[in-house]
Design a protein around this nucleic acid. Sequence first.
DNA 1: CAACTTGTTGACGTTAACGTAAGCACTCGG
DNA 2: CCGAGTGCTTACGTTAACGTCAACAAGTTG
Lengths: 152, 152
Amino acid sequence: MNATRRQPVPAAAPSPDDGLYGITELAREYGISLRTIRFYEDKGLLAPRRINGGRAYTRRDRVRLGLILRGKAVGMSLAEIEHILSLYGEHGEGHAQQLDYLIGRIDTAMAELDERRRHIETMVAELGEVRGELRRERAARQRAEKKGVRAS
Amino acid sequence: MNATRRQPVPAAAPSPDDGLYGITELAREYGISLRTIRFYEDKGLLAPRRINGGRAYTRRDRVRLGLILRGKAVGMSLAEIEHILSLYGEHGEGHAQQLDYLIGRIDTAMAELDERRRHIETMVAELGEVRGELRRERAARQRAEKKGVRAS
DNA sequence: CAACTTGTTGACGTTAACGTAAGCACTCGG
DNA sequence: CCGAGTGCTTACGTTAACGTCAACAAGTTG
């Protein structure tokens, strides 16, 4: 498997003109490792162009990476994220059926995310109740302390 | 390590009186495996009483398990969940300082959950946009098809 | 009493999501 | 020309969160 030789991009040159980014730029921009970005590629979540053996990322790729990281932030697995990402894909040509199917899948995804959101709201509410109890208790302590002070 | 012999609870008897539950009951109720429940115990997330060697769960334990599963549903790691669970613990006696500390931690937890919720809302909104595009495209196709039909 | 059920522990296997290390390629600055 | 910097691939290691399996114990039932 050593037919073609790799010709790494000369440097991490930000190449101000064409809208392409190097892997290091993306890594720094999003605060993740090179390994992670390559890993996402292995998983099929990213598919950067190859220029002289090096990876070249477009703005679209950057957006996709952003989606991936946001997905992770809300606790989605890479598989789920892949699922979602496919909904953003170029739906260049597609019949009405395909469109209906896609829209259906998006509805499903939105519903699932919404359920997740509701779960979170429930947890926030419950934590709020606990906090309320603690506050009342704290207030009681303070009154007690004041009494103590006045009594001393 | 065979000092004490286990004396498994006679059956999965729902023991209608005392408010205690067996591991199988909990597993079925929440749709998870026995192994998972024991695993959570190993992790310190649950600490059921032992009755004759068998695990006996109280209502409190059931609530905790519910919190654990909800945490998982929103994408929290068991470590994070453990963190949250500790906020529900019996704060039987504690000075004002302790209470302030606890309240602060709850505030932090709530803020983090809220951020997660916002991320989700962003994703839902973005998906909504994609869906909007697809709908417009579908409408265009339908108009085109009508034309085609009329022309045929 | 034998078989079955429910439960316990311990050890090993698995999947996801990376990290780490090794070794080679290429290019630029001095 | 030499070393530093950047990148690529391959391969093995790691952590979390369980699953699977085996062996054992104690009661329940035919």
